[in-house]
């Protein structure tokens, strides 16, 4: 079941690449939040307890509700232009992502022969990390950079669940809180940037250099 959910997670990434509406980006973030929480719960479906549910519930609240709402609020408050302005042709971008994903899946399959990893969640996680980075590189709007960062974080989160590294609950909660505060601070910064500069994209941030 985790494999099916991970594949769904990968499909959201592909959708992310071809869409040009900002609203869809936020919906995808929401969907990923739900998928991640589901992936966390599934292994424990037969012996559920409050202790096990804390982290998935928190992740559901933060990743699927709070953060997307916050980003939506920024988009509405700042009246960000709703169409994404890519600095690369959408088709080329799709090709790039598909090529990276295929490489990652093949590599994960090869690696799984040597190390105890689950190839599909592992490859999906890395695809998300790569997609997040490409979004940051190939999009101009700062708000999409924040979304790219969140996709990257989602990838790491999925990777964390596939590796099965034991983390104390407090550390997991702390890391989620950290991500939330990062996004919150970035939101405030975008707000300030839009009131200080005319636009909210990277082209305005070129004052500091040697």
């Amino acid at each position: 079941m985790e494999n099916v959910l991970s594949i769904l997670f990968c499909l959201t990434l592909l959708y992310l690449v071809i869409t040009s509406r900002l609203k869809t980006y936020v919906s995808i973030l929401r969907a990923q939040g739900v998928l991640l929480s589901a992936i966390m719960v599934f292994p424990f479906l037969h012996h559920l307890s409050v202790h096990i549910l804390i982290i998935p519930l928190m992740s559901l609240v933060i990743k699927a509700i709070v953060i997307p709402r916050f980003i939506n609020k920024i988009i509405i408050d700042l009246d960000v232009h709703r169409i994404v302005e890519p600095s690369i042709q959408p088709f080329n971008f799709l090709l790039l992502i598909v090529a990276s994903m295929s490489t990652i899946f093949v590599a994960a399959h090869v690696l799984s022969g040597y190390t105890p990893i689950e190839p599909i969640p592992f490859a999906s996680a890395f695809s998300a990390i790569v997609t997040g980075i490409f979004l940051i590189i190939f999009r101009k709007k700062l708000i999409i950079h924040v979304i790219g960062f969140l996709i990257l974080e989602n990838g790491i989160f999925l990777f964390g669940t596939s590796v099965a590294a034991e983390m104390p609950t407090i550390v997991e909660l702390g890391s989620m809180l950290d991500v939330f505060v990062v996004v919150f601070l970035m939101g405030i910064a975008i707000n300030k940037i839009s009131s200080t500069f005319a636009k909210q994209d990277v082209t305005v941030l070129g004052r500091l250099k040697d």
Partner: peptide, 13 residues
């Protein structure tokens, strides 16, 4: 403002 954005973003990534 630019310095803060860059620092926050780069270091977080």
């Amino acid at each position: 403002l630019e310095a803060m954005w860059k620092y926050l973003f780069l270091v977080s990534v």
